[in-house]
Design a binder for these strands. Structure first.
Lengths: 143, 143
DNA sequence: CCATAATTGATAATGAGTCTCAATAACAAG
DNA sequence: CTTGTTATTGAGACTCATTATCAATTATGG
């Protein structure tokens, strides 16, 4: 499924579908959420599969280009990715105390963004919204 | 004004208000918008003032902590800051072709975010919204 | 003016990500 | 299946932003 999409993408560009790319694609999707290149790399080694760090980085870039994964955010400790296939668009709330992440989607929010873009003559392609604050649990702890 | 705020912040923490920090504060504000540490550093050298790269980075962190500036986004080429004092909150549209940035503010957008937070029991402190796409000029060029 | 502790700056260190390049493997054509 | 062409791989060198180190310097309260 995603594999097909990736293969098509590669062929179109005269690129090849290799063992390493298969492994990296599968592991990326297996996270079913957020992940970072280093964790992905270790996952691969742990399961006895093989792919170098360089290939991981190279392939993640390809997967981004064909839309199978997305770069969510760059942190001090590197880039965070997320598999986006079959995953509908959503935004994030990030708890600045415990680091937990809430994914949410709001139709009105999307609509208003479209309006705002139109107002500025801007053609929006995609967006990232991150709301930082305190999750339910940490609000209690703060007191 | 901003200087007072910074001095107070420093005193509270037993930190000192030095020549270097003055220079870095003033230059940071002088950009009146987005800037990056490297440009700031070169601005300082160009005008014959003195402050090392190390001090620039250290001071930018302090200025962030006391809210006088904000980290807007991390790029492949480093962090982008923005002076936030006297600057009311706004979000960004980023043209992925020419790199131009449109700042905008939308009251309804803010209100809806508050609602969404409430719905998830989340206490929002601040947020970043970046809409990527094509600015008016680049839409024309694309054709 | 003095003593103390924070600050500075030159430079080394760190770490994510990219580049290099010789060896290897995918794939199309015969 | 075999071969030739060309993309890919991986180990390690490299880049570049940012942070840590540490001896020398300086702000600040008394």
């Amino acid at each position: 499924m995603e594999k097909k999409l990736f293969i098509t993408f590669l062929k179109e560009r005269g690129l090849r579908f290799t063992k390493e790319r298969t492994v990296i694609l599968q592991k990326s999707l297996s996270f079913n959420g957020h992940f970072d290149p280093e964790s992905l790399y270790h996952q691969i080694r742990k399961t006895g599969l093989k792919a170098s760090r360089a290939s991981v980085y190279r392939t993640l870039n390809l997967l981004c280009e064909c839309g199978l994964i997305e770069r969510v955010r760059k942190t001090d400790r590197g880039t965070i990715y997320e598999s986006s296939f079959g995953h509908k668009h959503h935004d994030h709330m990030l708890c600045i105390r415990c680091g937990s992440i809430i994914e949410f989607y709001s139709e009105p929010l999307e609509k208003i963004q479209e309006k705002v873009c139109k107002k500025h003559g801007f053609l929006g392609a995609n967006h990232t919204l991150e709301i930082r604050g305190y999750c339910k649990t940490c609000q209690k702890k703060k007191k």
